[in-house]
Amino acid sequence: MLPAKTGLGFKPEHFPAIIETQPDLGFFEVHAENYMNAGGMPHAMLERLRENYAISVHGVGLSIGGPDPLDEPHLTRLKALCDRYQPESFSEHLAWASHGGTWMHDLLPLPYTAETLDIVCDHIDRLQEVLGRKILLENPATYLTFAQSDIPETVFLAQIAQRTGCGLLLDVNNVFVSCVNHRSDPRAYLDAFAMHAVGEIHLAGHDSEELPSGPLLIDSHGKAVSEPVWALFGEIVSKFGPIPSLVEWDNDVPDFATLFAEAHRAAQRLEDTRHALAS
């Protein structure tokens, strides 16, 4: 389990600053697919980080929500990575990214039906069997919905957690992005979310475009966390207490001081909650 503190997505360009300053952070999160090769700098850096910090391995490559069987060679690589670093957490996405042997390199949306629920649960069963651990599954940011969907996303995720025993990774930015895009209420979404299963929170920035009907938010991970997302995060932790919380910033990555300031803001929220709970 990750400590109920804030973490940061690890960027190799920040490695010297991290080693020099040893920032007070609960954990670093790395994308599994950046550590699939045999040696060199990626592993040297991760080994060094591992000495001082809890590690969360976050996969983007398994295509859990796709119709094809899971990529067994990729499962083997994930298992080797988890065996090597013994991360405190492993998480993946409710999305798909490959089909027919072609990798599309994006987190693609799926309809929520009885059929896809069975597929996703089978895939998570297989993943958890291979890794020998429970995983966390992240809610997606979406831009479209599908006519064939007949299960709400929150119910779909809750049923996955119930059937497979996996935990959930609540990406608050994804909640906000999806709810704005689908003109629904993020607080109603959060009220329906299976909070008892949440093992980690993600926070990130988004971009915005204008459509005739209103804004279309894009989950870009390229800027600071937006104020509405901070507000939702504050409400969640004041209601449910401190939860391991990660700030992601994957594009137009700023210097480490800027990123650390974002993590510090999240840490303040967790501290405020601790004090409120204690008093």
Partner: peptide, 15 residues
Amino acid sequence: PLGAQAGDPTEIAQR
């Protein structure tokens, strides 16, 4: 894609 929809159907392609 099959079944793609949006509140305003004219926006599906853009989305």
